[in-house]
Design a protein around this nucleic acid. Structure first.
Lengths: 344, 344
DNA sequence: CGCATCGATGTAACTAGTTACAAGCTAGGT
DNA sequence: ACCTAGCTTGTAACTAGTTACATCGATGCG
């Protein structure tokens, strides 16, 4: 295990001081003959400067921390791509960690990011870690909360999220336009984004004279729970003599499961029941599934840009969802074909 | 922007030396009265130790570097999940970067990882960066190459890959068992893994008395090129009076595109043409698509374990692919139903 | 009662760099 | 020929920690 060359080794080899080597590497005033001797030494010793030492002197590392709740979701893949792209353009690397949806790990991972003195932090976590992110922001590392708005953000704490109420409204409008009146919802728990989407859908439906009763909304935390949820949704509707003609799924994570639960029951989409879900995905065009798309890649970019640009005032970005109309709610929407751009 | 408390501030607040604070934090012999005073100071000043400084003293950081060629592929998402899980279990974080399939960025990013003094490196890159990974391995940072075998690995350089020839063989056997004799292939370029899969398929097909002529293999680098590729495949076969009865796709990245190209031409799967592709995905069961699955999550875990366990001799892991039989090559495979486990 | 021992703590050197300041040397102007 | 200005370079202090070694005081034992 060969020892690694340090700046001192390079200096000794070239017969200069470490200061001169540092100047050659970072562009100070050095005579060309000396500089070439130093470069020769760098090459000969395969010297690679230690970025950690650089960072400690600079007070901050050049990495951007990203703490993700659930790395298995494609939404976050796109988000990370967006972050990575901005990071790469700013000579930063991405320090990634997953919390496996466990709150205690959220706190631990955010702390770890703090210890690593990340240049900024992008989190998709709950409020538990908020006190630390506030402190990090105070000490100069901007924190961006994704997919949640922060109540009363201090300087340095930003948020990038989706207009979930608007997502619900888009759903309601689209379903009503296709003559659906009895909507059932599969949602995923108590996260604010989920709640807002259901609330937005309910309100917009009410505005159109369509009710969304409590028992037309079921919660499923995981894919395995979905089949029961869909079953009880359909059964409940039968009891009310109110046959469901549309099923909405409020999270992309459960799209496959809900779709399968429907088709496994021999239900034809859209003839028997319309299907509408969140988050666009690569197979959606082939399957003709209409979705409310989140600009997840853009959310990642925006979040990273907030880290890099460090605006003085807290920024709260709320991005607009987009309805991508395909055939799962029936043909013939009166609006234009294909993608309806809803950026506000 | 409040200055951050250092170990010196804590020491001053508690009225002790920095050595004592360090001992309290890292478990040295300290009197309980002193220790509690120090802990009080740590809490009061919200002191968070600087992991960078720790790392520079230790000679190495605790992060595991991961350099990915194409972050948009779900294969890599699962890989990263596996890496992250092992990292989390070993108090490490994952330093991630994407090369956007550009060779010059590969070199740059591996260098950046080296500068960050990562504890070990997992790369899915080509040979260009090999000289650097060798040097990193020499200086104590194990490097694991994923999805490619390294010709003559020095100590500290490992590889985790798929048995691509076996993948080709599984394809051939399955197709032949379903009475297919005229196979066409869509593949993705000159990477060794792609070449091996096609070669394995061709050889196994030949063993079964079935030829795979050169012009039955087309290359498509991106999804947009796929439709032309499929078109020329089908046209070429017509010229030879040899109608294609099976289409194989050697990369999961192009599955959607190939599938769409087929169905867009009104081709019925499997009645007109059988369809077989690489990499399992969440919609495959719903669509009945038979796939050769890679254990991508396990590959990530194994790679990370090699980094953590740092075996003395170079390890070359070749994992077995698994055929997941569904309906896209026709029903009634004689082997057991569902998943055929092919771990060797 | 004196010396040895032990636990607790501080001092200072060390990690690998960056940079302010000082000093040396050369060259140009007078 | 001398003084000054400017370029080049080295010295040493600084970043935020860790740790080997020295020291100090308090017991314990003969």
């Amino acid at each position: 295990m060969a020892k690694r060359a340090t700046i001192g080794d390079v200096a000794a080899y070239a017969g200069v001081s470490t200061a001169t080597v540092s100047r050659v590497l970072n562009g100070g005033a050095v005579a060309e003959t000396t500089a070439s001797r130093v470069r020769e030494a760098v090459a000969r010793l395969a010297y690679t400067p230690n970025a950690l030492t650089r960072s400690i002197f600079a007070g901050r590392s050049s990495t951007i921390g990203v703490v993700i709740r659930d790395l298995s979701s494609p939404f976050y893949l796109d988000l990370i791509r967006g972050v990575d792209e901005v990071a790469a353009a700013n000579d930063s690397l991405v320090l990634l960690s997953n919390t496996f949806r466990q709150v205690d790990r959220e706190v631990a991972q955010v702390r770890a990011m703090d210890e690593q003195r990340v240049r900024g932090l992008i989190v998709t976590t709950g409020e538990t870690a908020d006190s630390r992110t506030r402190r990090m922001a105070e000490s100069g590392a901007p924190c961006v909360v994704v997919a949640r708005t922060v109540p009363d953000p201090p300087p340095g704490v930003h948020s990038v999220s989706l207009d979930n109420v608007e997502a619900g409204r888009l759903m309601a409008t689209h379903l009503a336009a296709h003559g659906r009146s009895s909507v059932a919802v599969v949602t995923s728990g108590r996260r604010p984004s989920q709640l807002e989407r259901t609330a937005g859908l309910r309100r917009a439906l009410a505005d159109l004279g369509l009710p969304l009763p409590e028992d037309a909304v079921t919660v499923a935390e995981s894919g395995t729970e979905v089949d029961d949820a869909v079953g009880s949704l359909l059964a409940g509707a039968r009891n009310h003599a109110r046959p469901v003609d549309a099923v909405v799924c409020t999270t992309g994570r459960l799209t496959v499961a809900v779709h399968s639960a429907l088709t496994a029951r021999g239900i034809a989409i859209p003839d028997d029941i319309a299907f509408l879900t969140m988050d666009d995905f690569s197979w959606a065009p082939a399957l003709g599934i209409t979705v409310i798309a989140q600009p997840s890649y853009e959310m990642g970019r925006r979040a990273a840009e907030l880290v890099v640009e460090r605006p003085g005032e807290p920024v709260t970005l709320v991005l607009a969802p987009t309805l991508v109309a395909r055939t799962s709610c029936g043909e013939g929407h009166r609006g234009g074909s294909g993608q309806l751009n809803g950026l506000s």
